[in-house]
Computed example of a mutant assay.
Amino acid sequence: MAGQLRIIGGEWRGRRFPVAQASGLRPTADRNRETLFNWLQGDIKGARVLDLFAGTGALGLEALSRGAENAVFVEKRRPVAQSLQALIRRLEAGIRAEVVMADARRYLERPLHQFDLVFLDPPFRVGLLPGVVEQLQRGGWLVPGASVYVESGIEETPLSPPDDWSCRREKTAGGVCYRLFQAGG
């Protein structure tokens, strides 16, 4: 249903929530999320999660619903971040979830935490992925063996991951390419 987010699995399975209406907001489709979380089955429980271009928060919320320890949602648009914060309050997930209203590149300038799982779903056709991946790698944001999910438009140049990353899974659906990497370490 347009304008709604559905949690697919875990504690909040089947719950639907309204999402903010904002230009360029493109939540990861249910089918793609279902595939991704099947790939991640053994990696979610107890994970520390970074949802870097959070938008609706679909990816980070799905991870929390499935047992992630905590999640940091980074979103630069105030109305979208406020909507996500309201949704987190509604789910009573406040101590496990933090919304940071900031530009993703700026947020990564100062390492604060290390994460087991990172979701990278930036606006398409803007060219943010290479720089963000470099900042994650250089800044020490990833625990050894961290999982990094990358979503991009199929018309975009594929991401050249760092040498010590391996592509665990890859799929294309509609106009979207999504890949799951394992960071070295």
Rank of each mutant, 00 (worst) to 15 (best):
S166H: 04
G10S: 02
A2N: 09
H113Y: 13
G131Y: 03
E155T: 15
V150N: 01
R78K: 04
A102S: 01
R31P: 06
L87W: 05
D163V: 10
V74G: 07
C177V: 15
K171Q: 09
G174L: 09
G42M: 02
T56S: 14
L108C: 12
L36Q: 02
R89Q: 13
D30R: 03
L128G: 03
L120H: 06
S147C: 15
R33F: 04
F73W: 10
F73I: 08
C167S: 03
A173Y: 00
F53L: 00
K171I: 08
R169E: 14
I88A: 13
V176P: 11
P130V: 04
D164E: 08
G94M: 13
F37A: 11
A54P: 09
G9Q: 10
S166D: 03
I44Y: 00
E170C: 12
W39V: 11
E155A: 14
A54Q: 04
F119V: 06
P18V: 01
R33V: 05
A97P: 15
E34F: 08
K171Y: 04
P122F: 01
L40S: 00
L5P: 01
L112K: 10
A58C: 10
I154S: 15
F119H: 02
A183S: 12
R66V: 14
L64V: 15
L129T: 02
L84Q: 09
I88S: 13
L129H: 00
S65D: 11
A2K: 04
V176L: 12
N70A: 15
V72H: 05
V19F: 07
R110K: 15
K76P: 13
R105P: 04
A86Y: 11
D30S: 01
P111I: 02
A29Y: 13
V80W: 08
G24Y: 00
G175S: 05
A47S: 02
G46N: 10
P144H: 07
P111S: 03
G67I: 07
R77K: 07
R168S: 09
K76W: 15
P27F: 12
L25W: 03
R105D: 06
V133G: 10
I95V: 14
A47I: 01
E98G: 04
Q137D: 14
N38S: 09
R169D: 11
E11W: 07
R15C: 10
F115G: 11
L84E: 11
K171F: 06
E62M: 03
R26I: 05
Q114M: 12
V143E: 14
V80C: 07
E34M: 12
K45S: 04
L25R: 02
L180H: 00
G14R: 00
V80H: 06
K45C: 02
G140Q: 05
R6K: 01
P123F: 00
P123W: 00
F37M: 10
A173F: 00
P111N: 05
R168T: 08
E98H: 05
R168E: 10
Q85K: 12
S83F: 15
A68I: 13
K171R: 09
